[in-house]
Design a protein around this nucleic acid. Structure first.
Lengths: 265, 265
DNA sequence: GGGCGGTGTTCCACTCAGCGGTACGCTGAT
DNA sequence: ATCAGCGTACCGCTGAGTGGAACACCGCCC
């Protein structure tokens, strides 16, 4: 009863997936939310819905494979997972190719810079760089955000397949702040505008006090967005218009570098 | 009871591990080297030594869990792995806390900046940032390197537990270039010096044409290294001495920020 | 054309890995 | 002392996982 999931919803928990060993293992790993560092066995049991004995066994197997780490106070995701994750094909190459451009952009703006890709109907951040003054953003590298309330999301959505766009527009436009655009019509207008101008904006739509400009990184044909780059800052000092050309420059430069690449992304 | 060799050494390709589903799954994922983007089924069969039917089934299960992706020409590590990997406890917090300091360091030097931790008797790079001019280094985020021939490795080793130091010194000091230090005595001298000065160097010991300075990020007691930061550049233009204070400053600043953190690393 | 070494896929009967209910020992709070 | 919650250990049942074999598909060379 006193349990209010203040942070994030852990997992969709498909019952059928829990019937296989692998499914259980993944469920345990995914039980770790973005902010969880240490979870005791009992908590894993609660989140996965698996029997205690099972969780205990599987978790220890995962420890043996260096995907989990066991401490006095619970389990945590281990370094082996990090190493594997950094080998993920698209994320890795995108990250490596993009890094210099992101650096340039950061030096020009000295504001938080994001690189994001679309995964399903959400944004996944592939990189986030910022200095000491960076605005307190909820985004994290490897984290997810809805598309409809972030600049990167809109930039990606504007240049996405029609099905995706429709899925998002017809889906649940969650109201995250008083400024979140929850009207499909208005959102669609913004997407059209983003298509024309090559820039998308967010004005306190995901987080109070945050503004953001983003530009899409288009594929060789210039039809679809492979990724998007954004600059974020706090209301007050931050003027999105001042960074438009810088973001666009970074995005197009990255796009043409990627286009030159042999194997594609 | 069955005698389990409790050596901390990272498990070799143990045949016993391939007898469990989880072991097979991990073996398949780990079959992807740092440079492999796409592996056909047959190649996975070869590398894992598992029967074809088995690999096929397990791989498809992994696809279902978004850890693998299936393309026309083979399998690749999927985005789900990236997301999970970025939640690994120590790597994530280290990365997030360190990023501003790494940025500063990069802006001051405009050379490739590394952040690394020790894993077993090797270095794992947690972050690598550089611009367009960056020296062509073999290191990659999430990648491994030996400790004895990298500046970060030496910095970590100098401030590591005696057992670790001994394990490395008595282990195989692989000769990677003509300049690699393969004499345990000489290496030990360098470590002593690194302990005194708080700086470690590499001069073309892992890669021809590359120089590197590193400083350890010490824990609250100042006894053990939690991580190390380095600056790398090509012979010729690059003068390690010029960056000594900058690297040291970054490392100590990061250390004291970490020390102030409630939960530790 | 017809064989041939290479792929990826499907099938299916056996069997042992995985299962999870039960029970135990250990905290700390009441 | 009692209790509630935790982590660990045990162990007999069983169906998920197994992998050999057979199949379908390439290009490639003769």
């Amino acid at each position: 009863m006193p349990n209010e999931p203040a942070t994030d919803a852990p997992s969709p928990a498909d019952a059928a997936d829990l019937e296989t060993v692998l499914g259980k293992a993944v469920a345990i790993l995914r039980a770790f939310g973005t902010d969880d560092r240490l979870l005791p066995l009992a908590e894993l049991v609660r989140r996965t819905g698996l029997p205690k004995g099972t969780v205990h066994r599987v978790a220890n197997d995962l420890v043996h494979h260096r995907l989990l780490e066991k401490t006095e106070h619970g389990y945590r995701l281990a370094g082996g997972l990090f190493e594997l994750g950094m080998r993920a094909a698209t994320e890795r190459t995108l990250l490596e190719v993009a890094m210099p451009f992101l650096q340039d952009l950061y030096e020009r703006t000295h504001e938080t810079v994001h690189l994001g890709v679309r995964e399903g109907t959400e944004v996944v951040y592939v990189a986030k760089i910022g200095g000491h003054r960076q605005a307190r953003t909820p985004s994290r590298t490897g984290g997810r955000m809805p598309m409809h309330c972030t600049a990167i999301g809109k930039a990606l959505l504007a240049h996405a397949e029609p099905e995706v766009r429709r899925a998002v527009l017809e889906g649940d436009l969650d109201r995250r702040t008083p400024y979140t655009v929850v009207a499909p019509g208005l959102l669609e207008q913004q997407l059209e505008r983003a298509l024309e101008t090559g820039l998308a904006y967010e004005r306190e739509e995901s987080t109070p006090g945050l503004l953001c400009v983003a530009a899409p990184v288009l594929d060789a044909d210039g039809r679809r967005a492979l990724a998007a780059i954004s600059v974020t800052g706090p209301v007050g000092r931050f003027r999105p218009e001042q960074h438009e050309t810088a973001v666009r420059a970074a995005a197009t430069a990255l796009a043409s570098t990627l286009a030159r690449r042999p194997g594609g992304l």
